[in-house]
Simulated assay, not measured.
Amino acid sequence: MGFGERFPRWSSAIIGVAQLLLTAAIIGLEVGSAYIDLAHGTIWVGFWAGIIFIKTVLMMLFITCCCRGRCCATYVFLWTIISGVLACVVIYFDQIFINDLCKCYLGDQLCCAVRGIESFRTNYSAVFEDCAQAIRDGTISSKVCPSRPYDKLKLIQAQLGCAVGMLITCGIYVVIYIFACLGICFGHD
């Protein structure tokens, strides 16, 4: 019995669809989080990790329908490991931001000036002038996080849950792949 028979098509289909939904949720939650506050409580991990997640999902769905051989499954295995590591990175940063919603990696000047998308449309010149005055006065550190973006908390928590789900689906694929490589069958004689 070949690798294709030991590696069930239904498993990669279910994992692929689950990863597709989780990837869409992670990216969508990052969009919502960035809209609320572009600088605080984010490092935009959902966007840059999402690029790798999309590649993994596409390859997972590709091996479901088209390439059932060991070579393709091994390629997806490597991408799945990378996605699992990035899911851990998303979990790490989400946990940091859940504990400190004012965390900002952009430096004091940008952390003061960059707020939610709405601030760019309403009165950004006042925000910019307030930050410039704080720089001149040497009080910029007090203006870095003028208000805690509590609206982001639920989005970050949801993204954390989706990242855990992505890590679990990656782990399941790794186990199924190893079983298929070792010749453990899934219901075949």
Rank of each mutant, 00 (worst) to 15 (best):
A73D: 08
F186N: 05
Q157C: 15
C185Q: 15
P146V: 09
T80K: 00
L101M: 10
F93E: 09
V45Q: 12
E129G: 00
Q159Y: 07
W44K: 13
V114T: 09
A24G: 07
A163N: 04
D137W: 12
G171I: 04
L86A: 05
L61H: 02
Q133K: 15
Y75G: 14
I36K: 01
E30N: 12
A180W: 09
A73W: 03
C170I: 03
F53M: 09
Y177M: 08
A24Q: 04
I178E: 05
G116Y: 02
G4R: 03
G69K: 00
H40S: 01
F97M: 10
G50K: 08
C102F: 08
A180S: 09
W44L: 11
P146A: 06
A87N: 02
I184N: 02
F53C: 02
D37P: 12
L167C: 01
Y105I: 04
P8M: 08
D189M: 12
D189W: 14
I168N: 02
I26L: 13
S119I: 11
A39F: 00
A39G: 09
R9S: 13
N123E: 14
G84Y: 08
Y105S: 02
V89K: 08
F128N: 13
M166L: 06
F77M: 10
R148W: 14
D151A: 15
F97S: 03
Y177K: 01
G4W: 09
I27M: 13
G187H: 09
C111N: 07
Y150C: 04
V174L: 13
F179N: 07
C111A: 03
I27F: 14
I172R: 01
P8D: 08
T74E: 12
C104Q: 01
C67S: 14
I81F: 06
F93V: 02
V127P: 03
T42G: 08
A25D: 07
I117F: 15
C111V: 03
D94R: 04
D189T: 13
L153K: 06
I43D: 06
S83W: 03
E30C: 11
L155E: 12
A18V: 11
